[in-house]
């Protein structure tokens, strides 16, 4: 089966069931990911930290639309979602706050120059 990082990310999110980041937040967010003519929809239900992920087309408080290939890059830390929003490759309708919270659950770039404290680095690093 071809790699599908978007699906992997969303399924992993569903498996985690509870994210501290989502605490005190309640709402539904639908992701419409298109690939050619096809659109695959995912529904995230967030309730005070608990998160449920399913494949569904039902109405949601916030709807995010993107090409799946682009979203693949977002979930692997190669593209920035907010830059994508300004560029028009990601579109958001409804409650933007929910989308921003989801954005903070994204992994970010895989590599960083960050090496932790200088002193602890000489002792083996982090």
């Amino acid at each position: 089966m071809a790699a599908n990082p978007s699906m992997d990310f969303l399924e992993e999110l569903g498996r985690r069931r509870h994210l501290e980041l989502f605490e005190q937040i309640k709402g539904t967010l639908r992701l419409d990911l298109t690939e050619g003519q096809e659109t695959v929809s995912w529904l995230l239900v967030v309730d005070d930290g608990d998160v449920g992920v399913s494949s569904s087309r039902q109405d949601a408080d916030c709807v995010v639309h993107a090409e799946r290939t682009y979203f693949d890059r977002v979930v692997t830390g190669q593209a920035n979602a907010l830059a994508g929003l300004l560029r028009g490759v990601i579109e958001i309708e409804g409650n933007l706050q929910l989308a921003l919270v989801l954005g903070r659950a994204l992994p970010g770039p895989t590599q960083s120059r960050w090496r932790g404290h200088r002193r602890s680095r000489s002792g083996g690093g982090r």
């Binding site: 980041l21 830390g77 920035n80 706050q97 921003l100 919270v101 903070r104 659950a105 994204l106 992994p107 970010g108 770039p109 590599q111 960083s112 120059r113 960050w114």
Partner: peptide, 12 residues
């Protein structure tokens, strides 16, 4: 708070 950092991103 909504935009608080969540990852290590050198560019940003």
């Amino acid at each position: 708070a909504t935009l608080q950092g969540s990852a290590l991103d050198d560019f940003r």
